[in-house]
Computed example of a mutant assay.
Amino acid sequence: MAKKPIGPVRRSFAPWDDPEAVPFIEFKNVTKRFGDFTAVDNLSLKIYEREFFALLGGSGCGKTTMMRMLAGFETPTEGEIFLDGQSLAGVPPYRRPVNMMFQSYALFPHMNVEANIAFGLKQDNMPKDQIADRVAEMLRMTKLETFAKRKPHQLSGGQRQRVALARSLAKRPKVLLLDEPLGALDRKLREETQFELMNLQEELKVTFLIVTHDQEEAMTVADRIAVMNSGKIVQVATPGEIYESPNSLFVADFIGDVNLIEAKVQERSATGTRLKAVHGDYVIDSGQETDASVGDTVWYAIRPEKVRMSVGEATAGTPNTANALVWDIAYLGDMSIFHNKIGDTSMRSTVANVARTVEQPISWDDKVTLSWDGDAGVILTG
């Protein structure tokens, strides 16, 4: 029986679930030190051909160093990197079938769009007729045909981004590396470009590796995400699995918005676990088993959209319900975020604004019942 995916899956492509699949890119026990500072710490990772893979983490976590080692701009202190079955040790950047697109785009200001795209092809001494055909193909794929004769300063930020992308793809690399490629774009254009990147990657069937600190960007474009912290990978999974089943407090807190409820294990059974909240008089019945013993402290991670709200007080002793006081409300148009006080702690909940007007709205200082399903959250031990 096939494993049921957690969360929506962008496409059926999933070679990482095939034990016979051979990785296209592989980091084997790679460490990179800069003096006394360890940027990447004994890291191993497998990425598959045609995968859109994201390295996600905060500043200084080691994600850009990993990309630069793959590109050949940095050399591992220890370990080895393989591409398409071949070790990259000693292979200079210009000999690697890899191209890199930088956040700054690095376009030549004195060249028009066509010339920028053709530059690398000319450096490789490709015949002129083939260069013309390849440039025309790249212009079509990136929707830049009408801008071919313009200089970079005559283009918008989104158009310059597409020129840089076209130039990076023109040489038909086996791997395209994208270093924070959309950081300079405004939010709306960034969202539009994310979908363009996804469609382009599927059409070209090129392996994409994107480095980003933007969680939404990684979850939108990537087949899988590696969440990094302090030079280590803490979880590798699909966006849905990362969001719905984080494997640690760090991942749960780093990805999206989450309520982390400190609790004590009250009962354990083959069908689940009962927890008693440390702050607030309520219990949590979870269908999840845990390795923690009775009496141990754990955390119950539940996303705000999984928490329901209703006016009035909960029936005492009812599992997965808590009495709360609405402390603050943020109206964001498509949804509203409620900060609800439970004793000396709070629990956030979100409500989708599905109607333009709301009858009997929940407002500040209202007493409410918060409730959730038994499988809505996950139990984390650290």
Rank of each mutant, 00 (worst) to 15 (best):
A164H: 07
A164D: 07
A166N: 13
A166S: 09
S168E: 02
A170I: 00
A170S: 13
K171R: 11
K171Y: 03
R172M: 09
R172N: 15
P173I: 03
K174V: 00
V175H: 11
V175I: 08
L176C: 13
L177R: 03
L177W: 07
L178V: 03
E180K: 07
E180A: 02
P181N: 06
L182F: 12
L182G: 07
G183T: 05
G183S: 15
L185S: 06
L185F: 12
R187F: 01
K188N: 08
K188W: 00
R190G: 02
E191D: 06
E192W: 04
E192N: 09
Q194R: 12
E196Y: 13
L197P: 00
L197E: 04
M198W: 14
N199H: 11
N199P: 06
N199S: 15
Q201S: 10
Q201H: 15
E202Q: 10
E203P: 03
L204K: 15
K205S: 08
K205V: 01
V206Q: 07
V206F: 13
F208H: 07
I210Q: 05
V211D: 12
V211I: 14
V211F: 15
T212P: 03
T212L: 07
D214K: 09
Q215N: 09
E216C: 05
E217Y: 09
E217F: 15
E217D: 03
M219L: 15
T220F: 05
T220I: 05
T220D: 10
V221I: 13
V221Y: 12
V221K: 04
A222Y: 07
A222C: 12
A222D: 14
A222T: 08
D223L: 07
D223M: 11
A226R: 04
V227A: 02
V227T: 00
V227E: 01
N229C: 12
N229L: 02
S230R: 09
S230M: 04
S230Y: 13
S230K: 13
G231H: 12
G231Y: 13
K232L: 08
V234T: 05
Q235W: 14
Q235P: 04
Q235R: 10
A237R: 14
T238W: 12
P239C: 06
P239A: 02
G240R: 10
E241M: 09
Y243D: 12
E244M: 10
S245W: 13
P246D: 02
P246A: 01
P246S: 03
P246L: 00
F250R: 00
A252Q: 09
A252D: 10
D253C: 02
D253G: 04
